[in-house]
């Protein structure tokens, strides 16, 4: 199982990287979005905040956990931004037994912070 995840992770990372490099125009609409994405990355990597790396492999992060799937190809997995946001806000809606922290419902992150984290995760 771990190998399986690792293989997927490697394959997809390469795929995602290739896709990024192939893209001539930036994915973001404006400077405000860029700032949010940067802040979202910071929150995602912060152990006291999102701490996403505890469970998910994320490009640019070190020593990721592997309890959850690697965060790659997020736009194809979550074409709708709101669905990704809802998953981060309260993953129990999709799976009541999930180990994923209900970041919004349990106020681990504020609504604004969840917006920024979602923006960052959606770029992955």
């Amino acid at each position: 199982m771990q190998d399986f995840i690792h293989n997927i992770s490697t394959t997809v990372s390469v795929a995602a990287l290739t896709a990024c490099l192939g893209l001539a125009t930036p994915l973001t609409a404006n400077a405000a979005d860029d700032a949010d994405i940067a802040k979202g990355k910071e929150l995602s990597f912060d152990r006291k905040k999102g701490n996403c790396l505890a469970c998910h492999d994320i490009a640019g992060g070190s020593l990721p956990g592997n309890i959850g799937p690697p965060l790659v190809a997020m736009k194809s997995r979550f074409p709708e931004f709101d669905k990704l946001r809802a998953q981060i806000y309260d993953a129990r809606k999709n799976n009541p037994d999930t180990i994923m922290v209900p970041f919004g419902a349990h106020a681990v992150l504020t609504d604004t912070e969840i917006d920024m984290v979602t923006k960052f995760i959606h770029t992955l």
């Binding site: 771990q2 790396l53 505890a54 956990g65 592997n66 309890i67 180990i99 349990h106 106020a107 681990v108």
Partner: peptide
């Protein structure tokens, strides 16, 4: 606040990593 049971880590996920630590 993190909404986790003992079982979440030590029954459902032993052997998996939480950051660099193996459960």
């Amino acid at each position: 606040q993190l909404n986790m049971s003992c079982a979440d880590c030590h029954y459902n996920n032993p052997g998996n990593k939480i950051r660099a630590d193996i459960l």
